[in-house]
Simulated assay, not measured.
Amino acid sequence: MSSSVCFDDRLDAGRQLARQLLPLQLRCPLVLAIPRGAIPIGAIIADALHGDLDVVLVHKLGAPFNPEYAIGAIDEFGNVQLGPDADPGSPWVREESARQLAVLKQRRALFSAGREALDPLGRSVIVVDDGLATGSTMAAALRATRTEMPLALIAAVPVASPEALELIGPLADRVVCLHAPPDFRAVGQFYRAFPQVDENEAVRMVRSRQPGDHATPCTGGLSDH
């Protein structure tokens, strides 16, 4: 491996994260993965913690002349978080928010196959991504999950920029990050293999895990794993 590579692939990253999370003795764990890249990582963590797996759906809001540049993010409940470059009253923000909310509703139907999203209420919730560059997507996911009143809210990532960790730190009860290198340029530089996660495979991973399949039942919503 080169000096900047920390993980063979997402499965390796998931195993390394799971080893750090296991000693926390989380109660009634629910792993929420940010699609699609975090789903293989989240599946490994959910299995290791004997918890449930679901997705948390957020989407960046792109700038008018560069859709790849994030001016904010929206969650599946319609909550919008805007960066300093965005005008909340602009027609573009309203239109982009409506577009991305429609996409999120379609994705929920795809991943959940008709069942409701798993309820974080009273559970130890681990929000997982495969790496953080700006941290804006994770920040939106944490804010959305916090409104659902989890017992504890943990952000878990294999690698992140120091700036991203500074952003998300106040939003979680605990942040588990394996590497935060000062020379961070892109998430993929820290993986030997970092292919796109196939959407069909990601959907299969989530749909194949019915609530309780891998979990110790939660007594009153608060059971040790």
Rank of each mutant, 00 (worst) to 15 (best):
S2K: 12
S3H: 13
C6G: 00
R19Q: 15
P23Q: 13
V31L: 09
L32D: 11
I34A: 03
P35C: 08
G37A: 09
A38D: 06
I41R: 03
D47F: 09
D47C: 07
A48Y: 00
L49S: 03
H50D: 13
D52L: 08
V55H: 06
V56M: 11
L61E: 02
L61V: 01
N66R: 11
Y69G: 08
A70K: 01
I71E: 03
I74Q: 05
V93A: 02
A98P: 03
L101N: 12
K105N: 12
Q106F: 03
F111C: 10
E116Y: 03
P120I: 08
V128M: 10
D129V: 05
G131I: 05
T137S: 15
M138A: 00
A140S: 09
A141K: 06
E148V: 00
M149L: 14
L151M: 07
A152T: 15
I154W: 03
P158F: 05
V159G: 00
A160L: 11
S161C: 14
E163L: 13
I168G: 00
P170D: 11
C177G: 14
L178S: 06
L178F: 01
H179T: 03
R185V: 14
G188L: 08
F194H: 08
E199P: 01
N200I: 08
E201A: 15
G212V: 08
T216S: 10
T216N: 10
T219P: 03
G220C: 05
G221M: 03
